[in-house]
């Protein structure tokens, strides 16, 4: 970051601590989620949810309320219950880690989600879980920024707008057909045009 600001709902994101960003409704799905042996996934999820709720002035969920919500999201996303009984991301396959990111998104219900290359290294089943998770969250008061190099994910998450970023600038914007066109002709033309 050399200059400028990143404003989110009028606040400078760069001035905020990571937890404050999350508490204000931002969710970043990691490309390579960290493995944290020793932290049980379930208690982490409950802790995260209650931290965000607390910041919003909502009362914390007790174990029973939390489990009800978690079980519902697991079922929505067709994620096996055994995954949340393991330590957080520890020994998870690439696909499992991405599913875990999407489960966290579904539980935290962010207003803005950023999926950073979430499709890299994903098999088609995991890709569908990610896409279904994102599609289920779509609503007029939520936004999702999907960062990808490929059309593949966009077959499952149909974008409202497509922006092409090259050399640190948005060089072209358009509807979903722009992504399709790029898949055929490549980025070369756009980059030289920029």
């Amino acid at each position: 970051m050399t200059e400028g600001q990143v404003l989110y709902k009028g606040e400078d994101l760069l001035e905020m601590e990571p937890e404050e960003r999350a508490q204000s409704g931002l969710f970043l799905a990691f490309q390579y989620p960290v493995e944290i042996p020793g932290v049980p996934t379930v208690s982490f999820l409950k802790h995260a949810m209650n931290s965000v709720r607390k910041a919003k002035g909502e009362s914390p969920l007790d174990a029973f309320e939390f489990k009800k919500i978690m079980d519902a999201r697991l079922a929505d996303l067709r994620i096996d219950n055994s995954m949340v009984r393991r330590p957080l991301n520890a020994g998870f396959s690439g696909g499992e880690k991405k599913r875990m990111e999407i489960l966290q998104m579904a539980l935290l219900e962010p207003e803005l989600t950023i999926l950073d290359e979430t499709d890299s290294g994903l098999d088609i089943d995991a890709l569908k879980v990610v896409a279904d998770g994102v599609n289920a969250m779509r609503s007029p008061d939520r936004a999702t920024l999907v960062i990808t190099h490929y059309q593949r994910l966009l077959n499952h998450i149909i974008p409202d707008r497509v922006h092409v970023l090259a050399g640190g600038r948005i060089v072209r914007s358009g509807d979903p057909s722009l992504a399709l066109k790029l898949e055929e002709s490549g980025y070369g033309d756009l980059v030289t045009a920029a």
């Binding site: 990571p18 937890e19 020793g38 932290v39 802790h47 949810m49 910041a55 935290l108």
Partner: peptide, 30 residues
């Protein structure tokens, strides 16, 4: 303390002190 792990926990809304406690707790459990 693993700074990447700390950042990950914080990025899910868990305050710094509590994130540290979680990681220390994990070490203790081990």
């Amino acid at each position: 303390i693993d700074q990447d792990a700390l950042f990950y926990l914080r990025s899910r809304g868990i305050p710094l002190d509590e994130a540290r406690d979680l990681l220390i707790g994990a070490f203790i459990e081990g």
